[in-house]
Design a protein around this nucleic acid. Structure first.
Lengths: 337, 337
DNA sequence: GTACGGAATGTGACCGTACACATCGCCGAT
DNA sequence: ATCGGCGATGTGTACGGTCACATTCCGTAC
């Protein structure tokens, strides 16, 4: 009954078969310079022959390095976070790190704390927080985490953060509408406790204030196309505005849907600007003017900051990527009345 | 210079502070029944006081259980895989497992093998393959993996697989068009080496053949809205069809964009059906008739199969979820000529 | 008063690797 | 001929847990 549960080959098995000591095998694995080439080849031959794989757990135990970067995210299913995560994974893998991703459903204290605890218990070496929610940052500050971490999609904080300058993006979008001649601009915002939503709203307000336009209270949505649709149906009953700046492309899409249904043309009656530039936005009806964010770039930079810190260099705090206004056909000057 | 690199507390530190042996602490951690309640409370108090976390690497080493499920995926940024992964993560976490996700960029042999090797070297206990590509399955079969695994979005194979019945979905979509009276139906397929694309194409061909319609060669796209758009521009130069069945919602969107640009109305001139029912599809112009797949359900079932297998039960092979046809406004009977 | 048994707790070994520190063999300089 | 020095390789130990087994404690039955 011995050969029942076959143990995976370990480093000593390799050593025995190659006729060397286990330490020599270890040196081959870690690419130590002082190994005779013939020995190295022999060891490598045995390794591939018996299909030996170093046990990561044992390695992690002795080095106390897990070579894992934790990712705490929320709303992972969205285009932005997903794109960033993909880039992060790529960059991490290239540097020999793997990712441990945990996705929190809601932004309440317990969820966040549980998520962070969970990641920390996997002895992650660094942490990336795709923290759209304000509260996540508070919890993070409170937990006083021992590993280097970087937050994405954050405007500022006393730690490393990496983001698209949302305020600037929102200002671009708003200014574009103002320059077209719009004076009554509605803003459909994301949920109030989302940092991005707040920043975009701030950019909108700054720009409208600077242009001395009447300040209108933005309405608070949930990022979904459905919300945009229902908000549109509601708002268009009064239609005391000629342009809409939506907090993201999905809400813009929903809004445009509602407009069509009520017989308003875009951009004839109402101009619409979105945010994100999801790949579909160019094919909406009409193609959507929006603000492009380079989510991949954000992800890559986050990892490069973390890697630098793990190596010992500790570069500057906040880094921002500038978004870009993409003008398409959903915006035009207001119709002369 | 000792207190420089502070070691994380270990199980013996806890034991010392609680005045018990390390084994007692271990029992508390593993919820062994034979622990006096007062002792247990004392140990737990120390644990939370000094912020002790069990070292997963050490635990994994001795139990040779990593409590990790590997996920091999491709094109992670898409709506479908992402949704499934989110559900998988949730289900796995509830069962005390974590995920190790690796994303392969392309479907060539090397990429796949590297990806699998990478996961296997992390001593995963099970593997979920979100394997849209045909070749992935071949590689998988060849590697003769030692851990239980399940493939998603696969039509069949001699192993566990879990999928939406793509063929049935494609037939539903096609039948819907036929029942409306269309006889000239174009299919814009996904890339040929994608299992899903193949299955949808097969469903399309089966249904058209059964209805004794003229067989038209589908055109092969890349799933993107951009492709749908350019394909539309090209196809509409001839316009020898009255309906289009697109392999996914994005391509349908792009196609509709091209139609509008060329002055064709949908569904007046051409009916369009998509596949997936992404959340935005209901707000396209016009709202898109499509086939809804329950990606979350697929993910959950995959995990439940794997967990059953890890427990020792080994249930049946292939499990399928039926998709659902969602009729919206992009389809109508062909215009009488 | 002693023997017995189960509940509660302690002890030793081991998992697979990396690191620090020997050890070995060989060549060239003295 | 001896020795230093260096390249190549081997030996002991630690990492932080779990498991099998041993031990202690205490109440109860005879």
């Amino acid at each position: 009954m011995q050969p029942d549960r076959v143990r995976a080959p370990n480093i000593r098995d390799v050593a025995r078969l190659a006729g060397v000591s286990y330490q020599t095998v270890s040196r081959v694995l870690n690419e130590s310079p002082s190994i005779k080439d013939s020995t190295k080849q022999r060891v490598l031959a045995v390794i591939s022959e018996i299909g030996y794989r170093p046990n990561q757990a044992a390695r992690a135990l002795v080095t106390s390095k897990s070579r894992t970067i934790g990712v705490l995210s929320q709303q992972t299913a969205n285009y932005g976070p997903t794109t960033s995560i993909t880039a992060i994974e790529q960059a991490a893998k290239e540097a020999g790190y793997r990712l441990s991703i945990t996705n929190i459903a809601s932004g309440d204290y317990i969820s966040i704390k549980t998520g962070v605890d969970y990641l920390l218990s996997q002895s992650i070496e660094a942490l990336v927080v795709i923290a759209p929610q304000v509260r996540v940052l508070e919890v993070l500050a409170e937990l006083s985490i021992a590993v280097p971490f970087v937050t994405l999609q954050t405007t500022d904080l006393g730690v490393h953060s990496m983001s698209v300058n949302q305020v600037a993006g929102a200002r671009m979008a708003t200014r574009h509408l103002i320059e077209l001649g719009h004076t009554e601009i509605m803003h459909i915002s994301g949920p109030q406790d989302w940092i991005e939503a707040e920043a975009r709203m701030q950019g909108f307000l700054e720009e409208t204030t600077e242009a001395e336009l009447r300040t209108r209270a933005p309405i608070l949505g949930d990022w979904s196309a459905h919300f945009g649709y229902y908000a549109g149906l509601e708002l268009l009953r009064y239609r005391d505005f000629t342009a809409v700046f939506a907090g993201n492309d999905q809400m813009a899409l929903g809004f445009m849907h509602a407009s069509r249904e009520l017989g308003f043309s875009i951009p004839g009656d109402i101009s619409v600007v979105g945010f994100d530039d999801i790949p579909e936005a160019a094919h909406f009806f009409p193609p959507l003017t929006t603000v492009r964010q380079n989510f991949s770039e954000i992800g890559r930079r986050a990892i490069s900051v973390l890697l630098a810190e793990l190596r010992g260099d500790s570069p500057a705090g906040h880094d921002q990527v500038l978004p870009e206004l993409i003008v398409r056909e959903s915006t035009a000057p207001p119709r002369a009345r």
